[in-house]
Nucleic acid binder design. Sequence first.
DNA 1: GTATTAAGGATAGTGATTGTCCTTAGTATA
DNA 2: TATACTAAGGACAATCACTATCCTTAATAC
Lengths: 161, 161
Amino acid sequence: MILKNQIEWALHCCSLLAAVPDGCYLPTKALAEFHGVPKEYLSKALQALSQAGVIEGTLGPTGGYRLARRPSEITFLDIVEAVEGKASTFACTEIRKANPCLPSKTKTSKTCAVARVMWKADAAWRESLKSTRLSDLAQMIAEDVPPEVLAKSAEWVAARS
Amino acid sequence: MILKNQIEWALHCCSLLAAVPDGCYLPTKALAEFHGVPKEYLSKALQALSQAGVIEGTLGPTGGYRLARRPSEITFLDIVEAVEGKASTFACTEIRKANPCLPSKTKTSKTCAVARVMWKADAAWRESLKSTRLSDLAQMIAEDVPPEVLAKSAEWVAARS
DNA sequence: GTATTAAGGATAGTGATTGTCCTTAGTATA
DNA sequence: TATACTAAGGACAATCACTATCCTTAATAC
Ligand code: SF4
Ligand code: SF4
């Protein structure tokens, strides 16, 4: 079980979109080039983000994408769920129904204990993702990346917005 | 992204193995029949659990599996990691390396901020799984399932141990 | 009108999950 | 000792989700 690689792409793209000047848009082409990933496929992830209302796109030359909200109002969970979906990572196939000791007049009791525990863990994962915002990420990156690289990247983005 | 169905099987099997009388073993055949899943494939999950030291098997007639430790010393995490592996659910392909503004003399700084956040969420998920033990599950099930079904199941298991 | 863009449908290629079959070796019982 | 039963595990094939590419359509700026 592993998250799709689009998750990594989406997170990085949102991080980069946070550097786009106000009122401007950054096209898919630039995002794909910056990260060295296929433009066509990255487009699918961006479409998912757009549908989820995390980013918004506009057409034409000068078109592209920008964040739909301020970085402080976008969480990792928003991005992950846009690409990966909101469904729980644990799927229950109700194998308890096969229990030979279960009378056929099954009163379909509430969801079983196993599923409840797994769903609780899933919720803990999502809660953790929800606790980090895009603005927090920008701050972490600012501490990691040398200022000159950061400035150059911002310039690179601005030139294509 | 979704957990493999063997996770559900493994959890249920461990739950059932907790009902095996002391010194006895329950064979794969019985576990598969009880849950209505293919015996051959379930066997793979049980082998993984065995290798992880969660359960232990023995050969011959009267052979089968039993828990390797007391239910209070087996957590959901033990079972999930035995089947699903210990690797993080987030894989980083280092796409930041493609950044055109990054000088080639990359000093491979520490793992990036994005990965750190994702790994932290992964850790929260595992921590939640770790907090529930097999003995807790038995208690939850005892509250959910009618006593007569519970007794009949225990009888069913004992007859095949 | 032309160039550029997002949106999205259609369709392969790839790889992991799922499932089956078979062999090998250890164990209990008669 | 012979037999029946078991776990362990290797070798596949089938299925399905993920990855990737290509193409069409519609909106926008110039
Ligand atoms: S017992 Fe729980 S996890 Fe198992 S099949 Fe039933 S609902 Fe699903
Ligand atoms: S920035 Fe982090 S998540 Fe992105 S490629 Fe680099 S290490 Fe991986």
